[in-house]
Amino acid sequence: MKLASFNVENLFMRARALNGSGFSAEGREILKAQADVNAILGKDKYTPADKRRILELLDTLGLKKSDESKYAILRQNRGHLVKRPRGGPVEVVADGRDDWIGWVDLTLEQVDENATRNTARVIQAINADVLGVVEAESRPALVRFCKDVMPAVSGTPYDHIMLIDGNDDRGIDVGLMTKKKFNIVSIASHVDDEDEDGVIFSRDCAQYEIETADGNKLIVLANHFKSKGFGSPPVSDAKRKRQAERTATIYRQLRREHEFIAIVGDFNDTPDSDPLAPLFNQTGLKDISELQGFDDGGRPGTFKNGTASNKIDYILLSPDLFAKATAGGIFRMGVWGGKNGTLFPHFPEITKEAEAASDHAAIWAELDI
C-alpha cells in the first residue's frame, strides 16, 4: 500500500492575505492582527487599553471606516463593537463580550482554477491508498474536489473522506482520504487537548484507525504544527514544541496496542530543530527519508525550493512499520521551483507560480502491510 501526505494549501477558497507570490510581510501582519483582535474581543471586559488596541488592530485590518476591507470583515451580528459618527473619530462602544455578538473574519477569495486542477494532478500521480491532507477547508470541500475536479484530470475520486474541524478558523484543517478496501475504522480528535499553557494544537492531531486491504490495522496521526509565519520566534517555537511533545505522548500511548503507526503532515520545522526534538529524539520514530533508496531528487526539502532548511513535511513511522517500508520519495511536479520555475521539472500545465498546486511537495511511502 502507499501512504502519502500533501499540504494542498486550500482547494477552493483561501484567505486573501495568504495569496500572492510566497507569504508576504503584509500577509503575516494581517493574520497576526486578526488573531490578536479576536483574542481581545473574547474578553469579558474591555479596558481603556484594550479599546485603544482594538482600534489599532482594526486600522491595520482596514476596518476603521467600514465593516469590510480588502483582507478582513468585522461581523457585528448583534449589538455593536464600534460606532463611526460622521465628522467624529471611530470609537469602541462595547464594554465587553456580553455587549455584542461578533468577531473578525478574513476575506476569502477563490483559488485559481488551474491551481486546483494541478492539485488533482499531484494526487492522481502519487496514487496513494491513504492520503493525509493538510490545509483542507472542510469535508464537503474535499468531497466536492474528489467528485468534480479529480475526474476532470482523469483521476479517480477517493472512496472514503474524513475531516474534523480543528482549532484554526481560517479553514486550514487536516483530513484523510482513503481508497476502497482501506476503511476508516475509527476516528479520534485531539482539538481539546490542553496542558498548563492551554489548548495545544493549532489545528488538530487527528487520529485515524484504518484497516488495510490485507486486513492489517494502521494508525495515522495527521498534523499541522504551528507556523513560523507570524508571531515572535520564541512564541511559535514554544507552541510547536508543545505540539511535538503531545504528539509524542499520544504515539507512545498508541504503541501499547498497535504495531503500525504513522505520523504525517506539515510540522513547520526541520528535523534537527529543538521544537521537533520530542518526536525525533525521544520516540524511536523513523523518518521515511532515512530509507535506503528514498527518492528526493537531490533536494531533501519539501517546501518551495526544496533546500534542507525547507524540510518541513513528514512521514514518520513506528519501528515495526518502518521495517515494512519498501520505497519512498518526494513528488515535486506540482511545485513552481525558483523565481522562474526552472529548478526542477513541474507539470506542463503549470505556466506560472499562481498555477502551482502548492508550495509544498507531496511525500510518500510504500508499505508492505
Rank of each mutant, 00 (worst) to 15 (best):
M150I: 06
K32C: 03
E245W: 05
T119E: 11
F260M: 14
R14V: 09
L18T: 12
H80P: 10
A262T: 07
F260L: 15
R240L: 01
K181R: 14
T116Q: 04
G132E: 06
A262W: 06
I315P: 01
E366C: 13
I315N: 00
D169T: 15
R246Y: 10
F201S: 02
V37I: 14
Q282I: 04
L131T: 07
D36F: 03
T307R: 07
K239R: 11
K304M: 14
Q243T: 02
G284M: 04
K352C: 14
M333L: 14
M333P: 06
G20I: 07
I315D: 00
E113K: 15
G20P: 02
N114R: 15
Q243W: 01
I219V: 15
R240Q: 02
D197F: 14
R299E: 05
G102D: 00
K339P: 11
I219E: 05
E211H: 08
I315F: 01
R86E: 11
I288L: 02
A365K: 10
T326K: 10
I369Y: 09
Q253E: 13
D204G: 01
I261D: 01
A141R: 04
N127G: 10
R203D: 05
D50V: 12
W100I: 08
A262M: 07
W103R: 08
S227V: 07
V199E: 01
A206M: 11
L31P: 01
S5R: 07
T47K: 04
L254W: 03
H80A: 13
T156R: 13
N7H: 03
L18N: 11
V8Y: 05
S186C: 07
L31M: 08
G229Y: 04
G102Y: 00
V185G: 09
V149K: 07
T351I: 09
L31F: 04
I200E: 00
E113R: 15
G215C: 03
L74G: 02
D98V: 15
G171M: 07
N118Q: 08
Y158Q: 10
R97W: 07
I184Q: 06
I164T: 11
G231W: 00
R252V: 10
K217S: 13
R86Q: 12
N19D: 13
D36L: 06
K65P: 12
V153I: 13
T351Q: 10
F322S: 10
Y314M: 02
R242L: 00
A72S: 04
I73Q: 04
A17Y: 03
I312P: 01
D148E: 13
D95V: 13
L163M: 08
A17H: 00
W364M: 10
